[in-house]
Design a binder for these strands. Structure first.
Lengths: 348, 348
DNA sequence: AATAATCATTAAATCGATTTAATGCTATTT
DNA sequence: AAATAGCATTAAATCGATTTAATGATTATT
């Protein structure tokens, strides 16, 4: 049987059933691998299978989802898909999801609680099977409600202390503590920490790691919190002011890749020499830090491991119907990339 | 065997109808703004509206899509979501789409024809209302088939000469021609062009612009085409070999941001001085080029305009049922960011 | 031979909406 | 008084699948 190259109307299960003079129930059973269980004759199974392959029939997944309640779609909510950290993670999660028969619907929350709330509602409405979320502050109730309704949820990059669910993150506190200690051991004494103002766990932990290191070493902290904005000028402005005000600084620690990138721009514009005027370290590693001259030390997050863990945990939740497994938290190690080995001590 | 304790069953239109002692048809008419048209009594409308608001009923969109054939979802296929160019475009398209009541399902094609084919089939299956695609080579028939079946399709970043459909791209040929001319006017004579091996329109046009400029100036072209790979080592290897082989080069033009970034890494590893040993220009602009020292001149694509155009064209197609409008191609201008103003002539 | 059990298949209900065609009522026209 | 038109609402069909319960035909058991 020759098929028209472009058939306008998609075939339905009824068309298949009619053409083969078999009931659609039988077709459905066969296509869902229940032929044996339903003791459907071998030749019938073959005949149906052959025809289905031939015409390339694929069940309408909307109808399927409506009936079964499953969509095979995972909702992924990152902070900002144009941030290289989240873009890379999204890419990896997408790959792993596709390999396991799931598709991804994604969106950026902008750390905006209301926007996130709407997006969750949208995902819910679309009957996504599971949620992967880098949650903004204030979204606790909505996430709790999801979980209460039995939806599989995995948080990443940060977590919500008041919500008991699975999450994947890195050892933020130790990472900044360790990197700060490194600076201190190299002889730097006036180390500033510049970050976005945020109460999110990962941001607080990173800040705490810095504080702990300074505290332990009897040094004075210099902390600058900047209000996040889409407009880079509004980030660079306060940064500029801060750096000009504190001439005594000999090192700066940036709390995220975005702060770090803006920081580099400001440092360039001020004509500061790295590391003679100022030593630098940033959280998150990417090409900008590798290619800056001299290259900037950075705390590299294990993005592959993060993506893998997130997907593994979620698939696990999706496949085991049991709701009674206690939630697990996975804390991954970071990799401190030390670059530009000039020690302060050497210069002194 | 224990059921979730507080599993709240979502309300359906039947529940609403029963509770108000009205038929579901009436509810549906009212909620779809057809009350007036159907002359439904004002008090009834108010009563229904009030109750619906009160209980927060939202129609099941799967059922709605199944019946109407519309999903309010746009499928977005980029080459690689972790590439900053595509990530930024995706982010902007997402914003514009949400503002117009559409959601985005996205995926990365990797420029892999078979993967793209599967993804198109997946989107189709999910009944997306429209397609935004940065198409790989060899996908002509699949796209044509989509269009023939009446699906709105907008291509971007490149187009398929054998497929007549709407597309948004930039003036690639002029952009490289212009930037190359700039190098020539500054006195550079041995200018190489390094790109990914590809027959895609944008890549061919960029290459042609370079060739035209050199041809016009009577200079000899040096072209290096690299096979794309996820593994950066496999890009940097050939690049390294090429640069070491052609010691006479005084300038290099990178055809994409990715080639450019890898190029910078190789140049750093070879210890070459920019621009004394080698002047650089790259297609696509981003932080890496701005922050490299000295900063690298780059051809900035107007990503906001691209995203806006893409969405505008697509929404236009979605709203006008008429299939007879001839397809439009939008060609946008780029912005050549000249950095590090040292002229070759000065040094000579 | 009547009953039960097994087999292979299918009719009909269902998911939750939209939409077409029909209903019963009142008011107006012939 | 019968026919027509207008009004307000709804029953039933539909989208395309899955799933439950039923069917008729054999075969085995009592």
């Amino acid at each position: 049987m020759t098929l028209p190259k472009y058939h306008v109307k998609k075939l339905s299960i009824v068309d298949i059933a009619n053409h083969l003079n078999v009931s659609k129930t039988t077709i459905s059973f066969i296509l869902n691998g229940r032929a044996q269980e339903k003791r459907i004759g071998k030749e019938l199974v073959d005949r149906v299978q052959k025809f289905v392959d031939e015409v390339g029939y694929k069940p309408n997944s909307l109808a399927k989802s409506l009936r079964t309640g499953k969509s095979n779609i995972i909702g992924l909510m990152v902070e900002d898909i144009s941030n290289p950290f989240f873009a890379s993670i999204a890419r990896l999660i997408e790959d792993r999801a596709y390999k396991n028969g799931y598709k991804i619907i994604y969106c950026s929350t902008d750390n905006d609680t209301n926007k996130t709330r709407e997006l969750i509602s949208m995902f819910r409405d679309r009957h996504v099977d599971g949620y992967i979320i880098a949650p903004p502050e204030g979204i606790e109730d909505d996430i709790s409600s999801l979980i209460k309704d039995g939806m599989p949820v995995v948080l990443f990059d940060r977590h919500l202390p008041k919500v008991s669910t699975d999450f994947v993150e890195i050892d933020n506190l130790f990472s900044t503590y360790n990197a700060t200690m490194h600076l201190i051991q190299q002889g730097y004494k006036n180390i500033a920490y510049i970050t976005f103002a945020s109460n999110q766990t990962q941001m607080q932990d990173r800040l705490q790691g810095y504080k702990d290191a300074l505290d332990e070493s009897g040094l004075k902290p210099f902390i600058q919190e900047i209000v996040f904005s889409q407009n880079e000028e509004l980030i660079m402005g306060p940064l500029n002011t801060f750096l000009k005000k504190h001439k005594n600084l000999d090192a700066v620690f940036f709390g995220t890749n975005h702060v770090g990138t803006c920081g580099l721009k400001v440092i360039n514009s001020l004509g500061l020499k790295v590391p003679d005027d100022l030593a630098l370290v940033s959280f998150d590693d990417y090409d900008v830090f590798k290619l800056f001259s001299p290259p900037v030390s950075a705390i590299a997050q294990p993005i592959e491991a993060i993506a893998d863990s997130v997907i593994t945990v979620l698939l696990n939740k999706l496949n085991t119907s049991s709701q009674h497994i206690s939630s697990q938290s996975i804390i991954l190690k970071t990799d401190f990339q030390i670059r530009g080995s000039s020690k302060k001590a050497d210069k002194a």
